[in-house]
Structure formats: C-alpha cells, structure tokens
Write a protein that binds this DNA or RNA. Structure first.
Lengths: 303, 303
DNA sequence: CTGAAAGCGCTAACAG
DNA sequence: CTGTTAGCGCTTTCAG
C-alpha cells in the first residue's frame, strides 16, 4: 500500500484539509501598487517572510476594491489573516474586519482607536529631524509637498514638520505648500514645477515621501534649477531609487524589513491566540543625507 | 428563515464550495520581484485583470522557490491555474506542471517545446531595430550589456542584436560585451563603469533591458561621460522610469497590458477546456526614441 | 418544482 | 498503538 502511495505522486487536497482544520495557510496582503514603489518593496519582504513561515500570500490592490475582497476572503474562510499596508480611518473594510474578529495587522499606515495590532515608524520624529536640519542650515523659504491626509504617514509627517518649524519661529508660506491628490512621480513633478514658477521660489522643499521627491527633483532638472546649490529637496522612505546617482535623495529610511517581520509575527501570534491584547509598535527610523541637500553634518535631535 | 439569513451577515464558506466544485477562483502568478521593475508592473496588470474576472491572485517569487510552491498549490487544488512570467528551460516546476496537466500560461519569457499557451513580444524584432538605428546613425564602437541567457527575452534580444550587426558587417568587440549574472540597476552600473574605463570606450551601448540601462546611465553620469553627446544608451521594456526626465531612455516598449490580458484570457479558456490546442502568441512592440540617444528619425525596419 | 440525502477528501476523535 | 468512523459546509442529485 505504502509503495503505491509513494510511487503515484499523490498530494493531499489542501481544500479538504483546510475545511477540517479551519486553517488555510494563506495570508492576505493589501497594498496600493500603482502609487508608490514602497508597496512593491514592502510586499516583497512580507511575501518572503510568509513563504519562510510556510504561508501563501494573496495580494489585493486597495485602489481597485481590494479591501472588500480581502474581507470577503476572510469571512469566507479563504485566508487566515490579513495585513493592511494602506489602512485609513474611513475604511469600511477595516471596520468590518474588526467586527468579524478577523485576525488583522496594520503596517506602515495606522488608524487610531482600531482594536488591532499596528506597526509603524516614528514619522513625526523623522519629519522633525528634516525640519531641524533645514533650519540649522539657514534655509529661508521652506516649502512642503504633501499628500492625502487620510494616510497617517503623510498626516504625521506634515504635522510634525510644521510644528517643528513653528517651534523655532519659522513657517511655511501658503504659496509654498502643495497638497497632491495622488502620490506619484507625476504629481510631485507637477507640484514642484508650480513652486519653481513663483517669483520668489523656495530654497528647500520637503516632500512627504520619496516618489514625490523624485518627481520634484526631475522638475528642478527640467527647469535647470541646480540641486542642491539653488534648491534643497528631501523625501521620506528611502526607497531603493533614492540612493541612485540619478537622484541621490536626502530622506528618512523606514526599516521596512523590521516592520514587515514584526507585522507577520504579530499576525501569526494573533491567529494562534485571538484573545491577547492589541498593541501598536513604533519603530525608529534613520535620517540619510545625500546629494539633494548640501552634505552638512546634522545635529541629531534629542527626542 | 430568509429574514434571519439576511440579517445575520452570513457568507458561504468558500472552502467547502471549492471542494465540491473543484474550482477555487484563485489564480497563481509567479514573478521575480527583486530583479526588475518589469515584474511589479506586470503583476499589477495581471492582478487587476484577474480581479475584474472575479479571481483572487496569489503571488510567488521564483527566486525564493516560488515555482515549486506554485505547483504544489496547483496539485493540492488550491489554485485553478498558474501564470509563469519567469519561466526558463531548466525549470523543473514547469515540467512538473505540464506532467500534471495543470492549466499554465507563460507570459514574457517563453520556453520552446513546452506544451502550454505562451505570450511573448517580438524581442528579436525590437533588438534588430535598435541595432539598425545605431548603425544608421554612424555609431562606431557598439557595446552590449546582456544578462542570463536562460531567459528567452535576453537570449532573443542578444542573438538578434548580434545578427543584425553582423549582417551589415559590424560586430561587437569582445571587450565591449558584458554579461551580468543578475539583472539589476547595480549590475548594469558596474558593467558600464568597466566599459567606460577602457582605453577605447564604446560610443553606443545596448542594454538587454531597462533596469540595466538605468544603472548604465548612472555610471556615465558618475564618470562625467555625456549622454548622448559622447555615449548613446538604449534599453528594452519601457518601464515607467524610462520616460522620467532623470533618464529619458531610448528603449523598446513591450505592450504589457495586452500581454497580461491575453495571458489571462488564454488561461481562463484553458481552465474551461483543457483539450484545446496550445498556441504561442507574439505581440508587436514599439521603438521609443528619447534623450539617451540623439533624436534622429529612424527608418522603420521591414520584417 | 421543492426538499431531503449523498458525498467531495480530509482530520480528529474514538473504539478495538 | 492501530484502524475505523463521523462530520467539516457546501453542491448536486434524486425522490417526493
């Protein structure tokens, strides 16, 4: 009997097993692929970690209704848990997931008062460091290219950046503030083109994330504005391209690997034990100075 | 009874249904995420198309054993079919999939003599067009940065590029040929740095794909070699970054949307009818001239 | 045309 | 410790 079994390349049917055990071995991940290279990077690390722990990864795109599909999948018992990387306060799907007591973890973006595990980084601290760095180096007209405030990351960075400037008596002139609707190279590019058309253009611009900053850098390049001689540009995230010579972008590095690993650990623990307390983790980030700002030493901010 | 059913937010268990119907509504996609921005782009289009046709997408990374995991999933009945974007001749998983009569489609890379549907583009034609363009414009020392030849895309481009040069009495000097092991910005960068260190450096380099070309462009930038005045660079794929001002890369556009849609249509048809004949489709591609080569009009090659 | 029953392939519990 | 059986939640079939 065993011989025949070994010969015929038999494999147990995973569906039937899943039905008995109420465990599919599949984890869902919700990303927003188009907007931001952060998501492919994060997805890759999450996927690798999940593969390593013996899980399959199913992916949904939050910009094409993926959140609802993910929750359907959880309710229908197709996935054991879901990782949100793009959660927002007004996400109905997230609310439903919590109601259903589905194992859920939020990583990157967080949402206040939602009872689930959350992993983020010190966005406020990073933005404060950039603000302090620009002021220390005598930047006079500081601009800000921000994005949709339903994203906690963008919101925290903008708020902290403004607060830190204000605390030292600086402020952002209204005409030096742009809030783009969609985070993309294109919108960063368009926003910077408008800033540089001003009679009195900025001498430093903080972009709420790297992909905006790359677009902004290319806008300066197109108009012949020299970076960093005439204009400093800083971003946030430290995506791979930020370190490329074409950009050499000053930015704040988010520890994506640590974030992803922690998130998966939390989710798997949650699946094992739904009762345990919910916690929000805030990981530290690193300020990275490159050629898009003058290579001046930074005074590390005590926080 | 119906009232209670409507009130309680009941959802049928998908596992049980899947078990009865032998249809999970899930399709697997195998990509190689780290190496090349082509894969996130392709994955996004595939995922969107699958979502539109009511399917879930599970993702595997071929560089971390994803091919085997995908075939396991198919044998265990967890997915209805699999899309390979990174198939190679020596892939045991692909062979096993064919043995098991699993619904499989190959897109981007193809493999000869494997009985399954395949979707590719005219890589030979695109590379020939670039070769002709470089020769027409009096490039004298033409270099080539190529990659692993187990990828049909790279192999076809290299072969056709060489053949087209040879047909006009040109050839690639041995010192102007580099074959990188892994396709990445970094390896393109390193290869170009070595080419530019030569006593007699190239005046044009064709990179077997865009991400290599971006690295190559940055190598020229770092060494102060002017593009296109001193050096022409061309890539292949037309990934999003190729059109950014920072690069403005001359390249050949692959119709990723058409490729992905066709691949999914073929796979779903295959799942419906395993018996139908296998076919290989070759879609046309577009030559795109940008600032990394002089903006000279091209004579369209008749093929 | 409606309602009960059989069974998909597996695992967990239980009896021998 | 091994072998048998019940049943997971659905769909399909068959009888009423």
């Amino acid at each position: 009997v065993l011989q025949v079994l070994a010969q015929s390349n038999y494999r147990p049917n995973a569906m039937a097993r899943a039905m008995r055990t109420n465990r599919t071995g599949t984890i869902g991940v919700i990303v927003a692929r188009i907007t931001n290279p952060v998501y492919p990077e994060l997805l890759e690390i999450l996927g690798r970690k999940l593969a390593l722990t013996g899980h399959r990864t199913v992916v949904w795109d939050s910009e094409t209704g993926g959140e609802d599909a993910a929750i359907d999948a959880i309710v229908e018992g197709l996935v054991d848990g879901v990782v949100f990387t793009t959660a927002t306060r007004n996400s109905g799907a997230l609310r439903r997931a919590i109601e259903c007591a589905a194992p859920v973890v939020l990583v990157n973006r967080t949402v206040d008062d939602v009872p689930c595990d959350q992993v983020t980084t010190d966005n406020a601290g990073g933005a404060a460091q950039i603000a302090a760095y620009l002021m220390t180096n005598q930047r006079q007209r500081i601009g800000l290219i921000s994005g949709p405030l339903h994203a906690s990351t963008i919101r925290d960075r903008e708020r902290s950046f403004r607060d830190t400037l204000k605390a030292s008596g600086h402020k952002i002139a209204p005409e030096l503030y742009h809030q783009v609707e969609n985070i993309s190279y294109k919108s960063g590019n368009a926003a910077m083109l408008r800033l540089l058309e001003l009679a009195d253009p900025p001498d430093a611009v903080f972009c709420a994330n790297d992909v905006l900053a790359l677009g902004a850098l290319d806008a300066a390049r197109r108009l012949g504005v020299r970076v960093p001689e005439d204009l400093w540009i800083a971003g946030y995230d430290d995506i791979e391209m930020a370190s490329w010579d074409a950009f050499s972008l000053t930015t704040v590095r988010q520890p994506f690997t640590d974030m992803a690993h922690l998130a998966i650990d939390l989710l798997l623990a949650r699946i094992g034990n739904m009762a345990s307390e919910h916690k929000t983790y805030c990981l530290p980030s690193d300020f990275v100075i490159r050629g898009s700002t003058a290579r001046t030493p930074v005074r590390r901010q005590a926080r």
